[in-house]
Every structure is written in structure tokens, then in C-alpha cells.
Amino acid sequence: MLLIIGFVGVIFGGACAIVASNKGRDVLGWFVLGFLFNLIALIVIAALTPLDKAQAAEGASDKRLPDEEVMGKDELRKKAAALAASLAQSREKMNG
């Protein structure tokens, strides 16, 4: 019985991996999902849209800030100087 379940898992995992490869998605991850969830994973990967290289690169760099939120060097230096001055004033008040 376990041999049949393993064989079916490998078949569905392989099918998911092939479809994922054709759509530019993670092959190993989809193989594991296909092995564990069989037909459900195959239906899901078949329904997903293909990734192009720009989308894949964008997904990897989601943790970076957008260009609008990145401050210029001068603006950053001014804020750092203001923070340092504020810290110095706070220390003077605490010390004496």
C-alpha cells in the first residue's frame, strides 16, 4: 500500500515539477507539493500564470524600499545631524 502511495506521489510530484518549470516557478518546491497533495497541487500549478524574469526578480527584491521612499544623501545627513544634536541635548539635561 505504501509503495502505491509513494509511486502516485512521485508521478504527481513530477507532473507538478514539469508544469512549474514551464511556468518559471520553483521546481523543487512544486515537486514536494505535488508529492504531498497530488491532484490538488497539480490543479493549482496549472491554474497559476507563468512568471517572467522581471516578476521573479521583483519578487526577490520585495524587501527593498521603493525609489520614492529612499532619501537622498543630503537629506539623510541633515536628519542624522538633527538626531545627534537632540541626543547631545538630552545627555546634557540628564547629566546636569
Rank of each mutant, 00 (worst) to 15 (best):
R64N: 11
K79T: 13
I5S: 10
R91L: 10
L83V: 14
T49M: 08
A41W: 01
I5Y: 13
S61W: 10
L65E: 06
Q89V: 14
A41T: 01
E68F: 14
L3W: 12
D26P: 04
E92C: 06
L42I: 02
I18Q: 07
K79Q: 14
F37E: 06
F31Q: 07
L48Q: 07
A81P: 05
S21C: 08
A88V: 09
G59C: 05
R64V: 11
V10S: 08
L51I: 08
L28K: 08
A85C: 09
I5W: 09
S21V: 08
A81D: 13
L76W: 15
K73D: 15
R25K: 03
L36H: 07
W30V: 01
M94R: 11
L83R: 15
L2E: 06
P66H: 15
G29Q: 01
G6F: 07
A15M: 03
L36I: 15
A20K: 00
A80H: 12
D74V: 11
I45Q: 02
A60N: 07
I45M: 02
V44T: 03
R77L: 09
A56C: 09
A85H: 09
I45A: 04
I45E: 02
S21T: 05
A82D: 04
L39F: 14
L76Q: 15
A80E: 13
K23C: 10
E69W: 15
A81H: 08
S61T: 06
K73A: 14
I4C: 01
A54N: 11
R64S: 14
G96S: 04
V27W: 14
D62H: 07
G13V: 00
L3T: 13
E92Y: 10
L36D: 05
L87N: 00
L33E: 00
V27E: 10
F37I: 06
L39V: 12
R77Q: 12
L51S: 11
N22Q: 15
M1I: 07
R64D: 12
N22V: 11
R77F: 14
A82W: 09
V8A: 15
I43A: 06
A84S: 07
I18F: 11
D52P: 03
A41Y: 00
S86F: 03
L33H: 02
L36R: 04
M71N: 12
R77A: 09
D26K: 03
Q55T: 14
L51P: 01
S90Q: 12
L48W: 05
K23A: 07
A17F: 03
F12D: 03
A17V: 05
F12K: 05
A81W: 13
Q89H: 10
S86H: 01
I45G: 04
A57L: 06
N95R: 08
N38Y: 06
D67M: 06
Q55S: 13
R91M: 08
K63I: 11
E58N: 01
M1P: 04
A17N: 02
K63E: 10
K63S: 12
I5Q: 11
W30C: 02
